[in-house]
Nucleic acid binder design. Structure first.
Length: 243
DNA sequence: CAAATTGTTTAGCT
DNA sequence: CAGCTAAACAATTT
């Protein structure tokens, strides 16, 4: 059940199998003609909410969507195993997710600078991208995986609360300063999310997402479907300004 | 326990 | 063709 930071944590978990040889494959998404057995997992990459498991002859792209999960070492008792890779000392198992086979050229097309969790994250470029879409609502921009790859509904809501901006604000109405703040806070919150998720205290730190009252003024938090994607936004009418 | 949901793609309309 | 909406998928939590 992931946003970008959860995927980064998952990658850190899976990392211990990099360099190891696959002994057994299972799951519904293994191509019949795959020669993956005996190959070495050479690298794991993530982009936003996607994870790439890179082998010599095949690259798996895993997306957990809303309800996907994974386990290490042991196969869980879930009947929607999509991909299971067993190594010498345990394995990795992905359930209820979307698994696709991709080739190298797909990886080459990815704009890694759009990933909020990546070292390659490019805030300057993101600012330019936003400025080019003045009629877009900021809530839609944040949920756009080509612009803020890895941001999900929690990060969107919490980051907007931190900068005091109403989710339905139009990008064209925001000052450059405000745009910069949003871009900075999307990544900042991503790393806080990761830290809190790892410590299992994420929901304790929600300030606005699924909250009843605004932590600043105490007013009732508004819950509304916003933007083209109609995803739920939580916000305070008083402390988040509509630009 | 019904309802909501940390996500995305696609079919099908206007 | 552009742009939008509804549907589809699925599992766990509130």
């Amino acid at each position: 059940m992931p946003e970008g930071p959860t995927i980064v944590l998952m990658k850190e978990d899976l990392q211990k199998f990099v360099g190891e040889k696959v002994h057994k494959v299972s799951g519904s998404e293994i191509p019949a003609d795959s020669k993956i057995k005996g190959e070495i997992l050479s690298e794991i990459k993530t982009f936003g909410k996607q994870t790439f498991l890179i082998f010599d002859t095949i690259i798996f792209k895993v997306h957990l969507m809303m309800f996907g999960s994974y386990s290490l070492y042991e196969r869980k008792d879930i009947d929607t195993l999509r991909l299971g890779l067993t190594f010498n000392d345990g394995g990795m198992y992905f359930y209820t997710c979307v698994v696709k086979v991709d080739n190298e050229s797909y990886l080459l097309k990815i704009d890694w600078e759009a990933d909020i969790m990546s070292d390659k994250w490019n805030p300057k470029k993101t600012e330019q991208t936003l400025k080019a879409a003045p009629k877009m609502m900021i809530c839609d921009a944040l949920m756009n995986q080509d612009i803020f790859s890895g941001v999900g509904n929690i990060i969107k809501n919490e980051a907007l609360f931190r900068v005091g901006i109403h989710p339905e604000s139009l990008i064209g109405n925001l000052t450059q300063q405000k745009l910069k703040e949003i871009i900075t806070e999307a990544r900042n919150y991503g790393f806080d999310f990761k830290k809190w998720k790892k410590a299992n205290v994420l929901s304790k730190h929600f300030q606005i997402y699924h909250q009843k009252n605004c932590p600043i003024c105490g007013a009732e938090v508004i819950k509304k479907n916003t933007g083209k994607s109609k995803r739920t936004s939580f916000f305070c009418k008083k402390d988040q300004i509509l630009y």
